[in-house]
Write a protein that binds this DNA or RNA. Structure first.
Lengths: 255, 255
DNA sequence: CTTGTCGAAATGTTCGACATATGCCAGCGT
DNA sequence: ACGCTGGCATATGTCGAACATTTCGACAAG
């Protein structure tokens, strides 16, 4: 009885620990993670449990199992970055290579204005509630930039705001794609600390976006979303040059 | 020796069989699939192997395991339709409910013109080779609409054409999203048989799209892609009414 | 009618053993 | 000396049985 204090405790997650080590770069593409037996010893688990967790990493596209040889970390482009579990690990342990993060940001700059446009056409009252709650959470901690009164981080509300807009499209593809926003938004906040540099201005941009969706004005929502993205991107020092659709504002501005 | 002809045969995939039954509607959301023991008996496998395959369905978001109760089929919106394995099952066994297919099509109508636009800016020579090979495959079987000389289906070339354009964006998110095209394209072909109705016209639209990308004319590529989509959609009898960005052609036509 | 307890049923975990695939290298033949 | 072949070591894949934990329902006491 002395070995374990609470015997009915959740078992340690091998996938979680391995993911942290892989995402932090301890194991790089081409490397082999420890073999099953060693993982069993390290986490005091059985091979079945270890193999179950390794299966999760396989489904995420992170490792590749070679019978009789070992488990190899796959190349970054082969990771399923559309998998919700993978994006969650990216938010928690940062992306292993900055190139992936840049491409995700480029994707955001491409699509978010159009997502906002679609949301402005399809948003229901319930969607507006979710958007507004997230917005209020963003504005309620201007003094304390770290933790809100609810214990939620400012970045959580920021993410919730953008995710709510994706879900407001009422399209399953856009809704599930919203997972990919998390690592990108977190990176922007941690790197540039937008809210600390000029929180009021950023908040005002978000408010305009929210109001455009509420008023069902798709084109205004398009432009407002571009303004939000431009604000955060410029705070990062990015030029938005690599984003082919980023400057499609010229197409809209002529209407 | 009589029990198994080739002892090194691949074991039957429980995930594959269960996926077929679930996608065909034999098990619907809320239903419980057979318990592990029964699956072991049915496929002559061990619980470890069965549990490994069930884990795959869990990672795909298709089933939910309830300790001590059973494995329940989850609601359709909870399925990870961005997972490559899920989209493959959708192409093979058709989507369980038509709503999902419609929303995927709506997503395509939204983004494909912009993907073509981006591809026109970033495509390399190697990308053009892939696009052209797929195009040639599409045109080489106008007489026999079923199987090509290589044994590949017409739909395979059609899918390869659109996937190649997604990959030509050189963005990892767009590249991995290309998986979602497969069920949608296959549905369009099977339902309306576009190539049989007017193959030459459809092929000509694809050729224009390819040429626009080759010539690095993003706006032409945008319009050409819209034409391709409009052609296939109209052949289906769809009105493209539910696609908020579909008629953003008006934005481009004014430039 | 509510509540507490027991028990059946299914999933979760553990252990030990064997089967199979992969890579390396020594031994053999040419 | 070179190349092929065979076996050996290693690590993953599969198997079988047992025990632990969770869930739900039945039943009886309050």
């Amino acid at each position: 009885m002395k070995s374990k204090q609470t015997p009915s405790r959740k078992r340690p997650s091998v996938a979680e620990a391995l993911a942290q080590e892989i995402f932090s770069g301890e194991y790089q593409p081409g490397d082999f993670v420890p073999r099953e037996i060693d993982l069993c010893a390290r986490f005091a688990l059985n091979r079945s449990a270890v193999r179950s967790d390794l299966r999760q990493l396989v489904d995420a596209g992170i490792i590749e199992r070679i019978s009789g040889h070992g488990s190899k970390v796959r190349e970054y482009p082969e990771w399923n970055i559309l998998d919700a579990q993978v994006t969650e690990w990216m938010t928690r342990y940062a992306a292993p290579n900055p190139g992936v993060q840049r491409e995700i940001l480029a994707f955001r700059l491409d699509v978010e204005p159009y997502v906002a446009m679609t949301a402005a056409k399809h948003a229901t009252a319930r969607d507006l509630v979710a958007i507004e709650e997230a917005f209020n959470g963003m504005g309620s901690d201007l003094d304390d930039p770290t933790v809100n009164r609810d214990g939620r981080l400012h970045s959580d509300y920021d993410i919730a705001f953008h995710v709510a807009i994706f879900k407001a499209t009422h399209n399953i593809v856009w809704s599930q794609l919203s997972h990919i926003l998390r690592p990108s938004i977190l990176l922007l906040i941690e790197t540039s600390n937008v809210s600390a540099s000029d929180p009021a201005e950023s908040l005002e941009r978000h408010r305009l976006l929210m109001e455009s969706i509420r008023a069902r004005r798709p084109r205004d929502a398009f432009r407002a979303s571009q303004a939000v993205l431009a604000g955060t991107a410029s705070a990062l020092g990015l030029e938005i040059p690599d984003t082919p659709l980023g400057h499609s504002a010229e197409l809209l501005s002529e209407t």
